[in-house]
Computed example of a mutant assay.
Amino acid sequence: MREVIRARGHENVSAAHASTFEVTTDDYLTPAGDCILAVEADRAPADFDPEFVSACRNRDATITATFEADGHRETVTGRGDPDLTFESDRSAVGRTSDYVDDRTILLGAAFAAEGFDRELVAALAEGAELTVMLSVEE
């Protein structure tokens, strides 16, 4: 199963956060938002198909997030959890930790924003269009 989010980069994208990465529907980004990779997302977790959400709520599920912008590609793998709600209508957040809130889309991520390819980050800081493909395997 798969979900796709389209968003765009912003001049304040720094991808410096050590434990999360995020894509938001907000149309702005301050320098403090160092986990945010893109803004103006066309979808949020609350928009995802209930079957996709159900599959992600399996503790044994593998969730893969693939980010593509301006010819650059980065893939991050994490896992699902029964506590994932996918209720946020604003942001999708991947976490290296086990912390869950309504924005969380995967846990135990292999890396966070600071681990993203710097060429991809530079393209996003220049405002590149971003496609995020989320897939889940139970």
Rank of each mutant, 00 (worst) to 15 (best):
S91A: 15
Y99R: 04
H10K: 02
L37E: 00
V132R: 07
D34S: 07
S135I: 04
N12H: 11
E138V: 07
A32E: 15
M133P: 00
V53K: 13
H17N: 03
F116V: 03
G108W: 02
R6Q: 02
A38N: 07
G78F: 12
V4F: 08
V100L: 04
G115Y: 08
S97I: 10
L130W: 05
D81A: 14
A69C: 12
A32S: 15
F116M: 04
D34G: 07
R57S: 13
D83E: 15
R43S: 05
R95S: 08
H17E: 00
L124A: 13
V53S: 06
P50G: 11
G94M: 13
F48K: 05
T104I: 15
R57Y: 14
P31R: 05
G108N: 06
D49P: 08
G71F: 12
A113F: 14
F48L: 06
L107W: 10
S54Y: 13
A109D: 06
G71K: 11
D26F: 10
D42E: 04
A32T: 14
C56R: 15
N12I: 03
F21M: 12
R59V: 14
H10L: 10
H72E: 09
F111D: 00
A16V: 02
A55M: 08
F48P: 05
G108M: 00
V100S: 07
V100E: 01
R103M: 12
M1Y: 04
E68I: 00
C56A: 15
D83I: 01
E114G: 00
V132M: 14
P82V: 14
R79K: 05
I5H: 05
D27H: 13
T24H: 04
A128R: 02
Y99N: 01
D49N: 11
T20K: 11
R90V: 13
R59Q: 06
A41F: 06
V23D: 02
I36A: 10
A123G: 00
G108K: 02
V13A: 08
A123S: 02
Y99K: 01
R57G: 12
R59K: 10
D34N: 14
R90T: 09
T96G: 06
E74H: 13
T64R: 11
A92M: 13
T24P: 01
D101F: 08
H72M: 01
A61W: 09
E74L: 04
A18H: 05
V100F: 11
E138Q: 13
T96H: 03
D117Y: 00
E68Y: 01
E87M: 08
D26A: 13
A92S: 11
V93W: 07
R118E: 06
R103S: 13
F111E: 00
S97H: 05
T30R: 04
L106P: 00
I36T: 15
D34H: 12
A69S: 13
E114C: 02
A55P: 06
G108Q: 00
L37K: 09
V136S: 03
I5G: 05
P50N: 12
G80H: 13
L29P: 00
E129C: 01
P50V: 15
A46Y: 11
P45S: 07
D117E: 02
E87L: 10
L107A: 02
